[in-house]
Design a protein around this nucleic acid. Structure first.
Length: 417
RNA sequence: GUGGGAUUAGUUCAGUUGGUUAGAGCGCUAGUUUGUGGCACUAGAUAUCAUGGGUUCGAAUCCCAUAUCCCACCCCA
């Protein structure tokens, strides 16, 4: 039996891991600079949290969740996204009593049972953040600028930002009636999905891929034109705040987003390099979610970015990731007697945080040299009987071939720069 | 859930109309007269040709099924 990683999962190998580490570290740095702190939440939650939080009519919940009963008979689900778990934690840990806004970021894996395609995995990784307690559009603009700053500091060029407002429950239900009146005479001619959507969520009929080209869909009234005064003011405020810092955006009335909890602001960063859908990062406001999950009514907003998709985009843009050297010096053993001394030197170097390697394969002198060269280790020193006698080694700089005599007791200091 | 392409060494790929011991590059191991590497040269190891059936004197090659990977639809990160 030959085992392989499960469909839609995969290994992140040493050859790539430094890119992930750079990405994760930069995201944390940027979040910190905005006053966000990291939170770590469990990989699984009770199924009900996602049904209620994400919405039990969404695709994610109805057909994509990894759900199973544990030995105690509880229904458990591997998180399909991060927001619901963070909201649960916010409520459970009484974070509403902390100074507002409460700002949290996270680095998680998430799980969705999907058919494979480019940029889509069953286990995938997200960097994201959530912010609680602030209802104004300033924070909407601020979390978008978190992403903008992150992209810029990672060396990415502009990635298209699409924004939209899907209103609050009040203006949305009013709009739904208007939309239904528009479609009612034509429902019969539309696709099966749209006939179902007509009753449950007419908003989604607008971005139907089957009927999308039809005149009746093209001419449908747009939610953004029917926002209530408060929602309209919020959206204008968002645009003004983005304009103020020079972040460019397109208003895309078709962004609906597949998760039920969104209200007012929704946005996506989209690219052509990560598959058909192209969303690298998506998010929005969810002013009703905390209350829906059993907390006191608290506005919230957040986003999540797919690390796999981000790296695809970074690679497509030719972003260079430099790999740090972990091992600074290789100690070549020249004689049988040198082994113990080399062990002592390595131990001292490592105690002082200096990475070093020595032969563990009983290799010839020449092979040790080759190994050090191939590994790209920047310094090298040969230790044989001469060095044992004199207590001095020649430290060779592998890049330019120069050698510097260094006393053994001074080796740590010499390499410490 | 619907449709399309693919699967040969660790890896990227060749492999003729079905015909003897299935090849190469990279990588790996060792050596090129035992105190200086990357390059080069030489040698070596490594393949149930995805799995199971079938056709045939003979299958990596043709047929069927299954699995996996990839791509599109849908949806999302």
């Amino acid at each position: 039996m030959r085992y392989s990683a499960q469909k839609g999962t995969g290994d992140i190998l040493p050859a790539d891991i430094y890119k992930w580490q750079k990405t994760e570290k930069m995201f944390a740095d940027v979040c910190h600079s905005f006053g966000y702190e990291e939170i770590r939440i469990p990989t699984f939650e009770q199924t009900d949290l996602f049904q209620r939080g994400v919405g039990d009519t969404t695709d994610v919940v109805t057909k994509e969740m990894y759900t199973f009963d544990d030995k105690g008979g509880r229904s458990i689900t591997l998180r399909p996204e991060g927001t619901a778990g963070v909201v649960r934690s916010y409520i459970e840990n009484g974070m509403s009593s902390l100074p507002s806004p409460v700002r949290l970021f996270y680095n998680i894996t998430a799980f969705r049972y999907e058919k494979m395609a480019k940029g889509r995995r069953r286990e995938f990784h997200q960097l994201g953040l959530e912010s609680f307690g602030s209802a104004g559009p300033e924070i909407d603009a601020e979390i978008i600028s978190v992403i903008d700053v992150f992209f810029k500091r990672m060396g990415l060029k502009n990635i298209a930002l699409h924004i939209n407002s899907i209103g609050c429950p009040a203006c949305r239900s009013k709009y739904n009636e208007i939309l239904k009146n528009h479609f009612r005479p034509h429902v019969g001619t539309m696709c099966e999905d749209c006939q179902a959507r007509f009753e449950k969520n007419p908003l989604r009929m607008i971005d139907c891929k089957i009927d999308g080209e039809k005149q009746i869909v093209q001419s449908a009234p747009r939610l953004i034109d029917y926002l209530c005064d408060d929602c309209k003011a919020h959206f204008e405020g968002l645009k003004a705040n983005l304009d103020a810092v020079g972040i460019k955006y397109d208003i895309d009335p078709n962004i609906v987003r597949g998760l039920d909890y969104y209200t007012r602001t929704v946005f996506e960063f989209v690219s052509e390099n990560v598959g058909t859908q192209g969303t690298i990062c998506g998010g929005g406001r969810y002013d009703g979610l905390v209350e829906d999950c059993g907390g006191t009514a608290t506005p919230g907003i957040g986003f999540a970015m797919g690390i796999e998709r981000f790296l695809m985009e970074a690679e497509a843009q030719g972003v260079e990731f430099t790999k740090d050297e972990n091992v600074k010096i290789y100690l070549v053993g020249m004689s049988e007697n040198a082994g113990a001394k080399i062990s002592q030197i390595c131990y001292q170097l490592r105690l002082n945080g200096i990475g070093c390697e020595r032969d563990l394969m009983n290799r010839s002198f020449k092979s040790q040299m080759k190994y050090a060269g191939k590994q790209g280790i920047p310094f090298l020193a040969v230790i044989g009987d001469d060095e044992l006698a004199s207590g001095e080694v020649k430290v060779k700089n592998m890049a330019d071939g120069t050698e510097t005599p260094v006393k053994l007791e001074g080796l740590v200091d010499y390499l410490a720069d």
